[in-house]
Design a protein around this nucleic acid. Structure first.
Length: 893
RNA sequence: GGACUCUUAGCUCAGUUGGCUAGAGCGUUUCUUUGACGUAGAAAAGGUCAGAGGUUCAAGUCCUCUAGAGUCCACCA
């Protein structure tokens, strides 16, 4: 591939991905015992939180994949057998909602079909839509092992879910219970507590007279027909005498008892509260305490029903019913008072309909044992959390966990493998477990059983995700389980992470993952939540098309920290694109240099044979300590800037390793920017325009390509393959080893840098335009500058550099330990006066703060010796500097 | 009501055992048609680290309180 002068990601990204995939490079290698580098453990596994199989990726998926794929590529380069397992979610409820809507559009309803028919229809619907998502995951560069893709309805998933359910059934942890459940009348299904969205709303509190002595306060007058008691607080003197008596319900006239219960708050409303056990969670509990009957007066479609409801109200929706009841109460004088209040109302998280707590028979999981085991592991710090505080949040959640309703009344999902006895056969159980869910009814010892029509809550099956993706089996060694890390959104800590931990421990006895990394929401550029209605949704696929996958990944990871909701904008993606462009041109420069040198000097040469050019000071050769390594070095450093870049790359690499270990993506990405852009391109490569040390250029370029590869896989791979001297793929190269360098030489370069920056600064501050290449540099007693005059000339952009020959002139540069002058004529120096004065003041302020520190006797006594010494040296330097600047000023004035 | 997070440059964010003059990207200003790159280079401006107290030789960093922003859980007849 030819290097074009500008970076065009769309030219190569899909080809590169296809090449990786067809070469089988996303598959984990088998763990190999290694002679040289011991890597234990040698595996690294991550499972992808499965995106909706028939949906499109959103920005959250973009972040997830950017993080996970960077991790997996990093550990792959580090030599681990890395396994990134992709997934697709049947997304039970989400997909069902979409399908039901489509059904309604063509004038049908779910009630026209059997469950099996509906299941088949949705299956086909998903099949048709499927594939988009997977293409989008590819476009983001996810190096996941596609052959191992797990769909949440795959046979092995269902098998595992059934086996867990059976185990729980046998362990007595699953039970059928008639309880109040969160019920969406629009979708006609129950939900778990976590699926309900609590919304603050304005409403009314009505005072309704039940008798002359008792007036109840309620927000839901329409449920009064289901009341089975009125509760008052046992300590409430107003009502003490009434406890045990009965009262007649208005409108229906049914008689109900007055009971004493702590639930009634004397300070709220009238202090007397109607108890409707079949339609309110608190009332349900009161009912249990007092053994009250539960009367359902609202049916599955959210309409008033039952014999207890006077005929005129039957069939009305909750909303209509409320109006009608209030009107009737008013008419008979029972509605005494109406008060505006703000309260939270539960809503369906999908359609927004008000959740109707409804009495239903459902399957429940007794979570006590599950939660207890999880809490003990968590308190034992067996799973490390990023951010750390989520560990406690999760423990607190588990401590208050209630039983888990796992049945859903939607056809799209895994059928609950339970059959109910038909008729009266006393010696037979009411329910039996059987996995033949394709049958509507089965026979068991001559007795007929019919299949339960419900499906599992998707979180019930999802909680097995780490097991099913890694093909965990009882009694079989699995080097990929537990996973190294579970990476997902902080918003599903309870719904998913908590359940995976509980289920993982329950089934395998082991924690399912060693670490948890939670990312926050990706907000829009102003820090607002993205939503379709606000129109501020950023589509990752569009950004990839516009700027490239690498740019997107770098942009979304930049400045991102664990667990926080953070803003994201197109600007950060542009910045990522610019880095890629930079790297592209760095590589182009080196490739061109390589071709020129090899064709000019060594037409047949390989990289090893190329002879470095001599140093500009005449000395040459190997600068790093001999005998420190056994392999033949691939390069020799010939000057300070080369030792320096080797040092910088090596140190950056260590910081990257540390950052990756701690999931500090923000710092790692910043480190890479600074290494590639500031250090490699702006300093090192500028210097190399003089030296053109090809073996070194090649080695260092390969190093930075590898270091960046986890974050920008496409551009780094493409460059790697375009270079004339490389073979194979970058994706499975070795992570760079430390580069050899002479530390003294590297430090010397660091000491020369201020001479160059000061020259540039003074030049920029001089009056008049076109100042570059106009004034030369003069050096006095300064061996570092005189030995590297060519380098200084190039970097400082001065036309000449020479010795002062004893008589200094021009502006002396304000650099400690250097004697360098900018050869500027006297009349120009005059214009420099202001900037010089400003500089003296600035250095003076710095000196002041250092001196103040030293004046404190406790500082000298208690601070580390090293610090005190540094402070003293600093003072000395500043003093010399100020003295020098003052003299300069005198000359000008 | 309980818990958690955040408040650092115009904007978005880094800053992990407390330690030299608090950093980055974008934006802004000035200069540069240098033979990798104008998706660039060089230079610069811009901060009482939300506020108040405390601990310490030393606080953006630790503690307490206050204010503001946000999230989660529970409750609300």
């Amino acid at each position: 591939m030819k290097f074009t002068s500008s970076y065009e990601p769309s030219d190569f990204e899909s080809d590169v991905y296809a090449a990786w995939e067809s070469a089988g490079l996303f598959k984990p290698t088998l763990p190999q015992p290694s002679g040289i580098e011991q890597n234990t453990p040698s595996t690294y596994s991550i499972v992808m939180p499965p995106p909706n199989a028939n949906g499109n990726l959103h920005i959250g998926h973009g972040l997830t994949i950017a993080i996970e794929d960077s991790l997996i590529r990093y550990y792959r380069l580090k030599g681990k057998s890395a396994w990134y397992i992709p997934g697709a979610d049947h997304a039970g409820f989400e997909t069902w909602v979409v399908y039901e809507r489509a059904l309604e559009k063509v004038g049908h309803t779910r009630f026209e079909y059997s469950r099996d028919e509906l299941y088949a229809q949705v299956w086909n619907f998903v099949e048709e839509q499927r594939g988009n998502m997977e293409l989008q995951v590819r476009s983001l560069g996810a190096s996941c092992s596609w052959d191992d893709l797990t769909f949440t309805l795959d046979e092995n998933v269902v098998k595992r879910v059934y086996s867990t359910f059976e185990k729980m059934w046998n362990d007595g942890m699953v039970y059928r219970g008639e309880k109040l459940v969160n019920y969406c009348p629009k979708h006609q299904t129950a939900f778990a507590d976590i699926e309900v969205e609590q919304v603050e709303e304005k409403g009314f509190l009505y005072d309704i007279r039940y008798s002359n002595e008792i007036v109840v306060s309620t927000t839901r007058p329409e449920t009064l027909f289901g009341d089975t008691a009125v509760a008052v607080n046992p300590e409430d003197d107003r009502y003490k005498s009434l406890i045990g008596k009965t009262v007649k319900l208005p409108l229906s006239g049914r008689e109900i008892p007055i009971i004493a219960d702590e639930h009634a708050d004397p300070a709220y409303g009238t202090g007397a509260v109607k108890i409707t056990p079949a339609h309110d969670f608190d009332d349900f509990e009161v009912g249990e305490r007092h053994d009250l009957p539960r009367l359902r007066v609202i049916d599955d479609s959210g309409k008033l029903c039952s014999e207890y409801v006077p005929e005129v109200f039957r069939g009305l929706t909750v909303e209509e019913g409320r109006k009608a009841v209030l009107k009737a109460l008013k008419a008979e004088g029972s509605l005494l008072n109406t008060k505006k209040i703000v309260h939270t109302v539960p809503h369906c998280y999908k359609c927004g309909a008000v959740i109707e707590p409804t009495l239903k028979e459902q399957w429940f999981v007794d979570t006590e044992r599950l939660a207890k085991a999880a809490i003990s592991r968590l308190e034992n710090n067996e799973i490390k959390f990023y951010p750390k505080n989520k560990q406690k949040v999760l423990i607190d959640y588990l401590k208050g966990l209630k039983d888990w309703n796992i049945s859903r009344q939607i056809p799209w999902g895994i059928a609950i493998p339970m059959f109910k006895k038909v008729g009266d056969a006393p010696d037979y159980p009411d329910w039996i477990f059987d996995t033949r869910v394709n049958l509507k009814e089965i026979e068991y010892g001559g007795v007929k059983y019919v299949r339960d029509e419900d499906t599992f809550d998707t979180w019930f099956s999802s909680s097995h995700w780490p097991l099913v993706c890694t093909n965990w089996e009882e009694g079989r060694e699995n080097p990929y389980y537990p996973l190294n890390v579970m990476e997902t959104g902080a918003d599903i800590l309870f719904a998913w992470v908590a359940r995976m931990i509980m289920m993982g421990i329950y089934v395998t006895g082991e924690i399912p993952f060693r670490e948890v990394y939670l990312h926050g929401l990706v907000l829009d550029e102003h820090g607002k939540k993205m939503s379709k209605s606000k129109g501020n949704v950023i589509n990752p696929v569009e950004l990839v098309a516009k700027y490239g996958s690498d740019a997107f990944r770098l942009g979304i990871l930049r400045g991102r920290s664990a667990g926080l909701n953070q803003a994201f904008s197109e600007e950060s993606v542009k910045s990522g694109r610019n880095l890629c462009n930079k790297l592209w041109n760095i590589s182009r420069f080196i490739e061109v240099a390589a071709q020129m040198v090899s064709s000019r000097e060594h037409p047949e040469a390989t990289a090893e044979d190329e002879t470095p050019e001599p140093r500009d000071d005449g000395s040459a050769g190997r600068r790093f300590p001999k005998g420190t390594f056994e392999r033949k070095p691939q390069y020799e450093t010939l000057n300070m800037s080369e030792d320096w870049i080797c040092r910088e790359i090596t140190e950056a690499k260590r910081r990257i390793e540390k950052g990756m270990k701690n999931y500090r993506f923000s710092e790692v990405v910043e480190e890479l920017y600074s290494l590639i852009w500031d250090k490699y391109a702006d300093w090192f490569l500028e210097a190399e325009k003089i030296y053109k040390n090809l073996p070194l250029l090649k080695t260092t370029l390969e190093s930075i390509l590898t270091l960046l590869h986890p974050f920008a896989p496409f551009v780094t791979e493409t460059i790697y393959q375009s270079l004339s001297w490389t073979d194979g793929f970058l994706i499975n190269q070795k992570w760079p080893s430390d580069l050899e360098f002479d530390p003294i030489s590297a430090e010397n370069f660091e000491r020369l840098v201020p001479v160059i920056t000061e020259t540039r600064r003074v030049l920029a501050g001089l009056p008049g335009a076109f100042k570059t290449k106009k004034y030369g540099l003069l050096y006095g007693d300064d061996s570092l500058v005189s030995d590297n005059s060519l380098l200084v000339m190039k970097l400082a952009r001065v036309p000449s550099i020479s010795s002062t020959s004893g008589t200094p002139r021009g502006i002396r540069l304000a650099v400690p330990n250097h004697e360098v002058y900018l050869d500027v004529p006297a009349e120009v120096i005059k214009g420099y006066k202001d900037s010089l004065t400003e500089r003296i003041l600035a250095v003076g302020r710095e000196l002041n703060s250092l001196e103040k520190r030293l004046e404190n006797p406790n500082y000298v006594k208690k601070a580390p010796e090293k610090l005190v010494k540094e402070t003293k040296e600093g003072i000395k330097e500043k003093k010399v500097l100020i003295e020098r600047l003052r003299k300069e000023l005198e000359v000008i004035a």
